[in-house]
Amino acid sequence: MTEMMANADAPHSILTFVCSTRQEGHGGDEMRPDGPAYSLQILSVPPDHHPGQIERPAFGAPDPQHHIMVVSTHEMSEDDFRNQLATNISGRIGSNRDVLLYVHGFNTSLDAARFRLAQIVTDGRFGGIPVLFTWPATNSIFDYEAAREAATASRDSLANLLKDLSEVPDIGRIHILAHSMGTWLTMEALRQRAIAGSPSLNGKLGLVMLAAPDIDLSVFRSQLSELDASHFSVLISADDRALSLSQTLAGDRPRVGALDPRKRADRLALARLGVKVYDLSGKSDGLIDHDAYADLPDVVRSIGAQIGRQRIQDQDVTAVLGQRPVDTQVTAAPLPSAGASAIPAGGNAPTDGKSASPQAGSTPAPPSAVPAAPAASVQ
Rank of each mutant, 00 (worst) to 15 (best):
247 Q>L: 07
247 Q>D: 12
249 L>R: 14
250 A>I: 00
250 A>L: 04
253 R>Y: 01
253 R>V: 15
257 G>M: 05
265 A>D: 13
265 A>L: 09
265 A>C: 02
266 D>C: 05
266 D>E: 07
268 L>A: 10
268 L>I: 14
270 L>M: 15
273 L>A: 07
275 V>F: 04
276 K>P: 02
276 K>H: 13
277 V>S: 00
278 Y>R: 02
278 Y>S: 09
279 D>E: 05
282 G>S: 08
282 G>W: 04
283 K>Y: 03
283 K>D: 01
283 K>I: 01
285 D>Q: 13
285 D>Y: 06
287 L>M: 14
287 L>V: 15
288 I>V: 15
289 D>I: 06
291 D>A: 12
295 D>V: 07
297 P>C: 06
298 D>G: 06
298 D>S: 15
298 D>I: 01
298 D>E: 14
299 V>Y: 03
301 R>T: 12
304 G>M: 04
305 A>I: 02
306 Q>Y: 00
307 I>A: 06
307 I>G: 03
309 R>H: 08
309 R>P: 00
310 Q>I: 08
310 Q>C: 08
310 Q>M: 10
311 R>D: 11
311 R>N: 08
313 Q>H: 11
314 D>H: 11
315 Q>M: 13
319 A>S: 11
320 V>A: 07
320 V>R: 13
321 L>D: 00
322 G>H: 04
323 Q>D: 14
326 V>L: 12
327 D>E: 08
327 D>G: 10
329 Q>N: 10
330 V>Y: 02
331 T>D: 04
331 T>L: 04
333 A>F: 09
333 A>W: 05
338 A>F: 04
338 A>K: 05
339 G>W: 05
339 G>D: 06
340 A>P: 06
340 A>M: 05
342 A>T: 12
342 A>G: 14
343 I>N: 01
344 P>K: 02
344 P>T: 09
345 A>N: 07
346 G>P: 06
349 A>P: 02
349 A>L: 09
350 P>V: 15
351 T>K: 08
351 T>V: 15
353 G>V: 03
353 G>H: 10
353 G>E: 09
354 K>G: 03
355 S>Q: 11
356 A>D: 11
358 P>E: 05
358 P>I: 11
360 A>Q: 11
360 A>Y: 10
364 P>H: 06
366 P>M: 02
366 P>R: 04
366 P>S: 12
369 A>E: 14
369 A>G: 04
370 V>F: 10
371 P>F: 06
371 P>E: 12
378 V>C: 13
379 Q>P: 15
